[in-house]
Design a protein around this nucleic acid. Structure first.
Lengths: 140, 140
DNA sequence: CTTTGTGCAAACGATTTGCAGGATG
DNA sequence: CATCCTGCAAATCGTTTGCACAAAG
């Protein structure tokens, strides 16, 4: 049985990406967190203990990962591009107060009927963004 | 009965905004189009015939309009902030091919039941983003 | 006449790019 | 060993800011 590390390596290779320490680190970091970090968040995290990656490399790793569909971006805030290793369909909750973003599993919300939309559009999918205040911000 | 112009002037005044030619032009332009333009799109449009506004003024007008809730931003594309004078609840359709964004009236989609979400969140609202290919791009 | 808005240019922050050296398959 | 990646620094893009002048109420 393969370790988590091997699985990540295999995933990168299967998509035709060379496995480098930096690229591995970026993807592993993103897989290990659920807070939808920005490129800079990831960079800081990786370099926390010791400098291992440069800014440009994090950006290029993210772009490479995005091109092979291992990572996607989440845009729910002005001027901020966040990243997500969860590429399957799911919804988002965004706290208006602190800006935190949480995933909402697809099954949590009932499926929408899109038949009512213009028949001239070829529909590929949809996603719901819920606005509100998270538990942490309510008590403060 | 008041003209369209008077209505816009009244709206700006009622929100406590001074009515200047530039601010008026930005809001009128946004009201008159449904393509969710960027700040720069608006600027080019306003200055098409003759220069009337500067870049900084368009940005500051948009911010002023946003603060009094006459205008909102739409974030569906990386690195691009678009604006919308339709501030009521509605959904969006985004063409994956050309990036065009169309409004979907709220009533078009059935209301979602959000009871299934975490009771620890205070829900304020939601919005659906539909992905697909617009009619124009399908025939190309 | 006081307050607020405008325009210019410089500043800014996030992201991208060019390029020389280094690592990967 | 050919190809692709990394890191640095400079470039770029959208947006913001400082400030002197002008316009609105």
């Amino acid at each position: 049985m393969s370790s988590q590390t091997d699985q990540i390596v295999a995933k990168l290779k299967s998509r035709g990406l060379r496995v480098t320490p930096q690229r591995f680190a970026v993807y592993a970091n993103l897989l290990g967190r659920c807070d939808h970090p920005t490129a800079d968040d990831i960079l800081s995290d990786l370099n926390q203990a010791a400098p291992t990656s440069s800014q440009a490399t994090v950006y290029s790793s993210l772009q490479a990962l995005r091109e092979v569909n291992l990572v996607r971006e989440v845009l729910l805030e002005e001027g901020v591009c966040r990243y997500d290793a969860n590429v399957g369909p799911h919804h988002h909750f965004r706290c208006q107060s602190c800006g935190a973003i949480a995933d909402i599993p697809w099954e949590t919300l009932a499926s929408l009927n899109l038949q009512t939309l213009s028949p001239r559009w070829q529909i590929e999918g949809y996603e719901v963004t819920v606005r509100g205040v998270c538990d942490r911000c309510q008590t403060q």
